[in-house]
Design a protein around this nucleic acid. Structure first.
Lengths: 212, 212
DNA sequence: TAGATTGTTAATCGATTAACAATC
DNA sequence: TAGATTGTTAATCGATTAACAATC
């Protein structure tokens, strides 16, 4: 608690990359790897990888590198895969239902417990075996049984009304797919944005710059 | 061409943010804004915003700030919205079809011209009025009528086979939704990744760190 | 004119890279 | 032991912030 050191977001972001990279090694039945090899295959530097990992501990063997399985297990811990986090998807349009049907939450230790929408045709039904509640039920529902992660897949216009509910319900994290610009507040939920718009036009802008 | 100066990816990424932010001002019928106001509402610094914008030109009026519409128009140019870029979605599972049905490509000047999948049940049909071709047809198709952006929404395993086709077909950009780690090569397409896995576990990792 | 705010140069800060002692 | 590679400290690089002259 008090020896908490600040860990930069860039470092945290690369932890997932390392986890995914180790997956590709395991697929090829490679069980040992050096920072040098990791670096060349991920287009990072060996120095950066060692520096990044050292933020969280010492996972390597001097002289021989890292044990792939062991390192991946430690990364799973760091990434919170073993925390038993629960999630709820809010908004069941194309995007929300795509996530419900095809994002492998469970595979990585996250349990989706319920869904929310405003459409009366959906409320009360089940989608992919998960109960659909009305947004209005959220405060009561989470009071009884809190959820850790809100997957926000509603229209941008609805986000303004919903975010305060989430904050009040003491959600730990918001995975935000709306165009709304959510800002983290002290003591409030952690926010991670998937801004499809920004991503696509970052691409276009780079294409555009290159063609100058 | 020769006075081409390197523009950092972080700057480019913020251009889309500025564009979106100006949208919210226009919704509120606000037509003039200072860097100071923009900064306080986007949680950036005024200095950074002015610095960022100055990378691309001079868009402000000393003493009175920026004209919202004018600045947004210039940003649209910078982001390539007026280049008439075309796109094709490759892979029509949950994710690909979600994008086809609900991402407003056209609204921002990008024209989706065709779709690709391997499923014989889909090939030859139309989805959202767009023709679905088999992946094998891609080289011939793009030879006749090149596409600027490949939206890669196929399974990770298929990406390895498809990416070389895209590179050969001289695609300008790949919007990559697969877990595959694509690397940009000199002269090759620009790559922009949406790694849902990384994003979700960046969130979880932060939640996890906070709870230490 | 006086006040306000830009665009830009200079200073600071943080993140990445290099180097190397420790050690398996 | 000799060779290899980690973890960490120090050096470098780039990105952000501060400051201010220019000017509307």
């Amino acid at each position: 608690m008090n020896e908490e050191k600040y860990i930069s977001k860039s470092v945290i972001r690369r932890m997932s990359l390392y986890y995914r990279y180790l997956d590709t090694l395991l697929e090829k039945q490679i069980y040992s790897v050096t920072s040098e090899t990791m670096a060349s295959q991920t287009k990072l530097t060996a120095s950066q990888i060692r520096q990044d990992l050292s933020t969280f501990g010492r996972f390597g063997r001097v002289g021989s590198g890292y044990d792939v399985k062991e390192l991946q297990d430690r990364l799973a811990d760091i990434l919170g895969m073993n925390q038993g986090y629960t999630a709820a998807v809010i908004g069941l349009g194309h995007l929300g239902s795509m996530l419900v049907y095809s994002f492998p939450f469970e595979k990585y230790g996250i349990r989706v417990t319920e869904l929310y929408d405003i459409d009366p045709k959906l409320v009360g039904t089940k989608i992919a075996d998960l109960p659909v509640y009305s947004i209005e039920e959220l405060p009561r529902q989470w009071n009884e049984c809190p959820v850790d992660i809100a997957v926000l897949a509603c229209p941008k216009s609805a986000a303004a009304d919903i975010v305060p509910l989430l904050t009040d319900a003491k959600v730990k994290g918001i995975w935000n797919f709306t165009n709304a610009n959510l800002h983290e507040k002290d003591g409030g939920p952690t926010v991670e944005n998937i801004h499809l718009f920004d991503s696509l036009f970052t691409l276009c802008c780079q294409m555009n710059c290159r063609d100058l």
